[in-house]
Design a protein around this nucleic acid. Structure first.
Lengths: 133, 133
DNA sequence: TAGTTATCATACCAATATAGTCAACTACTA
DNA sequence: TAGTAGTTGACTATATTGGTATGATAACTA
């Protein structure tokens, strides 16, 4: 797993939304301003989050985004998988993004990487937005 | 951390060298052939490994590469750091490759990523080539 | 010492990913 | 119906990934 700006920005934005839970919709400009993120880029990320079912949107005045579920029901794993793909160190040990890679032949090596994958995905699966907001 | 072909090929080549320990030098072409790796690309990786002090080389007939230390003294962490950089999921929680990133402000989030970094680096630090050969 | 073997060093390349920006459009609601 | 705000797609610049190609240099051997 490698976190890029996409996941990082998305996490910050979602934490922002989590803190605004129950206060209606927050618009992109306000979020970008508050978190110091590039607005237009953030928009793209929010749309991806929307397609992934993590947020809901509302157009027009007083529109914006809000979480589609309680913060406690959104895991960091979901967010990162959506924006940066596999949590595993290499695709050949990934459950959701499996692909064959050269190290696959070496079983001893594979076991190490699987242990890493298991730790990372369990940890991120168990941690929710509520835990980090 | 994200494993690219560089680390993957390097790991396979080093495992090959570990298995040939005490049998003199192994040339790139033989290794590439045996492991099914692109020869010229592998050459570059071996030179990086040499600069990093993990292997020694010998030119001319019967030349090639060999481990510069016993396999039990070369950790997977060293190899991966040399070829793919930080083991941490993001630079802001990396010890050897620290760099500021956006998530840095959110301490709760940072703690999670540090726990991941700690697990990954400890695991890869403790595992040596001897363990996987 | 000439020829062979192999590393060493650069330069080059195509494809993809990263990190955005910009312009135009659609929908909502006050 | 005017203005707010999300939606969509195209576009850009730069870096990374995963290699190839060419040649020089060093070492061993006949």
């Amino acid at each position: 797993m490698k976190l890029t700006r996409r996941s990082e920005y998305a996490l910050l934005a979602l934490i922002h939304l989590a803190r605004a839970e129950g206060k209606g919709y927050v618009n992109v400009a306000a979020m970008a301003e508050a978190q110091g993120l590039p607005g237009k880029f953030l928009e793209q990320l929010l749309m991806a989050l929307k397609r992934g079912g993590l947020v809901k949107s509302q157009k027009g005045p007083h529109g914006g985004y809000r979480l589609s579920r309680p913060a406690g029901k959104i895991s960091l794993a979901e967010i990162i998988r959506l924006l940066d793909g596999a949590l595993a160190p290499t695709e050949s040990v990934s459950t959701y993004f499996y692909e064959s890679t050269p190290v696959e032949r070496e079983k001893r090596l594979l076991r190490i990487f699987k242990e890493i994958r298991d730790f990372v995905s369990t940890k991120l699966e168990k941690t929710t937005l509520a835990d980090v907001s």
